[in-house]
């Protein structure tokens, strides 16, 4: 699916990456805990999150995330926008909550970059 379609499905506003709407995406990961994103998200995926600080952009950059979808109507700071522009990482914002965002994308064929974790030892 193209990023432009993601934008339409989520009724999203594009904040960074107007020129990236032709980008193809097939998978996504959603979390507000960046360590979980680092542990599980795969390259080329969408990152759905409610966090808006610069560390979200750093995390996305480290993992080669295709684009960031901010949920619950979150708007990034000017600092976050500047870093995303510099690192060429598209940011979209949608008013849908995380659950709805994930569900709407899943219905249209976007799948998780993994469906279950292999090992939950020590997890609380």
């Amino acid at each position: 699916m193209k990023l432009s379609e993601v934008k339409d499905i989520l009724d999203a506003e594009i904040i960074v990456g107007e020129d990236c709407l032709d980008l193809e995406v097939h998978t996504a990961f959603g979390a507000d805990l960046m360590s979980d994103v680092l542990a599980f998200a795969k390259a080329g995926s969408l990152l759905l999150t409610g966090l808006t600080n610069t560390q979200v952009i750093r995390t996305a950059n480290v993992l080669d995330i295709a684009a960031i979808i901010l949920v619950r109507g979150k708007k990034p700071s000017s600092e976050t926008i500047a870093l995303a522009s510099e690192l060429k990482i598209p940011i979209l914002t949608t008013k849908y909550i995380l659950f709805e965002t994930a569900g709407r994308l899943y219905m249209k064929g976007i799948v998780g970059c993994l469906s279950k974790v292999e090992n939950t030892s020590g997890r609380t």
Partner: peptide, 15 residues
């Protein structure tokens, strides 16, 4: 608040 501090950093590094 930055999305860290859940006790996963060193585990991620090791993994």
């Amino acid at each position: 608040e930055m999305g860290f501090g859940a006790g996963m950093g060193l585990c991620n590094i090791r993994n």
